[in-house]
Simulated scan of single mutants.
Amino acid sequence: MEKNILNRILYFLGIEDENPVSTEDRADYEPYVNRPEIKPKGRVINIHQTSKNKMVIYKPASFDEVREISDEVKSRRAVIVNMEKLDKDSAKRVLDFMSGSIYALNGTVKKIGPGIFIFAPDNVDISGTAIEESFQEKSFLLK
């Protein structure tokens, strides 16, 4: 009887379970450990085992080169495309095709200048403000 009251007091204080596990059952019993869940901040890679990431620059003369550009992004390389040589219609077609390719690969597109875009796969992070925006701010200050 005293043991029963002592067990209830210990249970009330949170020191012992109400129905303690017998020594025979303890071999199969694994107590639950309350650990805080740790979420990974990002992918950890060994810098000594990876090859260098490459960036490719294209200045296409026609829409026919867009497949080659898209293949570079599929190969997980960032691509800078300068469309200054192209007429407006061809440049729009290249931009539309590449935007679709980047969307399918979960990548990103950033405009870095007039007619110049960077297409990056999901393994390449692009951060910072676009050069185009800084040109507009400077021209505003000069007026």
Rank of each mutant, 00 (worst) to 15 (best):
D71M: 02
S70C: 01
I47S: 12
V56S: 05
T23M: 07
T129F: 09
E132V: 10
R35I: 07
K52V: 02
K143F: 12
R35E: 10
P114L: 08
D89M: 05
I38Y: 08
P31G: 01
S62E: 10
D96C: 03
S101D: 08
E132L: 15
V66F: 03
N82Y: 05
M83I: 15
V124P: 06
N53S: 06
E132R: 10
E37Y: 08
Y29L: 08
I5M: 07
K85P: 05
D122M: 15
K39E: 07
N4H: 11
V109Q: 05
E68Q: 08
D89A: 11
A104K: 13
I9G: 06
K138A: 09
R26F: 07
I69C: 03
A120Y: 04
K88Q: 11
F135L: 14
V44T: 12
V73L: 04
E24R: 09
D122N: 14
S51D: 12
G113T: 06
R77Y: 00
S127E: 14
G107I: 01
H48E: 14
F97P: 01
R35K: 13
K110G: 02
F140R: 14
R43Y: 11
E65C: 07
L141H: 02
L105V: 02
S90D: 11
Q49I: 08
E18V: 09
L142P: 03
E37N: 10
E137I: 13
R26K: 12
L141N: 05
L141C: 00
D25S: 07
D28S: 15
V33W: 05
D87I: 06
Y103P: 00
I47L: 15
G113F: 06
F12T: 13
N46V: 03
D25E: 14
D25H: 09
K52E: 07
P20D: 04
K111P: 04
E132G: 06
T23V: 13
V81P: 06
K74D: 01
I116V: 13
V81M: 05
K88G: 01
S51A: 13
T129M: 11
N106H: 10
P40Q: 14
I116W: 03
M83W: 11
A104R: 11
K74H: 03
